[in-house]
Computed example of a mutant assay.
Amino acid sequence: MWEYTDKVREHFLNPKNAGEMEDADAVGEVGSLSCGDALRLFLKIDDNGRIQDARFQTFGCASAIASSSVLTELVKGMTVEEASKLSNKDIADKLGGLPKEKMHCSVMGQEALEAAIKNYRGEEAEPAPEGEIVCKCFGVTDVQVRRAIEENNLTSIEEITNYTKAGGACEECHGKLGEILAEVRDGRKAEPAKEDASKPMTNIRRMQLVTKVIEEEVRPALKKDGGDIELVDINGTEVQVSLRGSCVGCPSSGVTLKDFVERRLKETVEDSITVREV
């Protein structure tokens, strides 16, 4: 159960300025229904560039509704230039704070405002999110992740998830998120992170990672010398494979399995993994 402030409850139960604005001078839209959150922000701006009215339509949780509502209250009376300097922290602070797991709702408000201002200024919206998609589940790019880290002084993958939703579903992008975090925080490239040893790995997750390493690293390396490998089954932490091509009957096949295949899976997936030919 989330702990909400009185301000969050107020804006959720009695949202201000909800609904469409037919004669809007600017519209900003972010998010996606498929990702669980979406926000459309409407602005009415006078000839002097001052925001006279703001309305919103949103799909999401209590924090998303409250963040959208308070955002419309914040920008009313501001000039476009003043509004462009609003941050997600300003939105969260105006609500008296948000649960850390819901900070991405304030980020969505900031991004919708930025999109609306671009629309008002006649700047073309990006046809797709800027940067490389690192979280396929929620469509989050590396640019969005870097920005969240820098602007909010994030120090962990959990915090990145709280602010962007990246890594909140299948967790496949956690390694990449760790690399980006290290680059931003320490100015260096990081080694891809292994799975957290304190969290029991599910059979499905183990299968995904083993398959990925074999298909992307092991098979291409063996094929260079005319060999090949097939993943037969995974029984707990035992990976069962079958060698193919020039690897069949090769005196060094045992070395290949232990010193290459098994060692690489231990490094990238799980220390307890063993590899057996069947």
Rank of each mutant, 00 (worst) to 15 (best):
K76R: 15
L33V: 15
G28N: 07
A115R: 12
Q110H: 09
K118V: 00
L181M: 04
E191V: 15
E159H: 01
W2S: 02
V213C: 01
K136S: 13
T237L: 08
D225G: 12
L154R: 02
E20N: 14
Y4I: 05
V30H: 07
P99T: 02
Q144Y: 05
K102T: 00
E111P: 01
R121D: 12
D233Y: 00
G139F: 13
M21L: 15
N88Y: 03
V269F: 05
V261L: 11
V184C: 11
E130G: 07
G175E: 08
L71H: 08
E183C: 04
E216Q: 15
E22H: 11
E158T: 14
K16P: 00
L41G: 10
V218A: 09
I229F: 07
I234R: 00
R206F: 09
G19N: 06
K102N: 03
I133H: 02
A83I: 03
K102A: 04
M103G: 03
E101D: 11
E217G: 00
M1Y: 13
E20R: 15
T237E: 13
E183M: 09
V30L: 07
M207W: 11
E216Y: 10
E159M: 02
M108A: 05
V241K: 07
S84Y: 03
V8P: 04
I160V: 10
V143A: 15
K266P: 04
V27P: 07
N203H: 01
Y163N: 03
G245L: 05
G49E: 06
N203V: 01
Q110I: 01
V75C: 08
K94P: 10
Q240G: 01
I229W: 10
G122V: 01
S253F: 03
G49L: 02
V275A: 08
A221L: 08
G227N: 10
A64M: 01
S156Y: 09
I157D: 12
K223W: 05
E101P: 00
P220H: 05
L177C: 02
I234P: 07
R40T: 15
M201E: 07
C170D: 14
S69C: 04
S69G: 03
F59K: 02
R9W: 14
A38Y: 07
D53Y: 08
E217D: 15
D233N: 11
G97F: 11
S242Y: 04
C137S: 15
L222K: 08
Q208L: 08
H174A: 07
L98P: 03
E277G: 07
E130H: 08
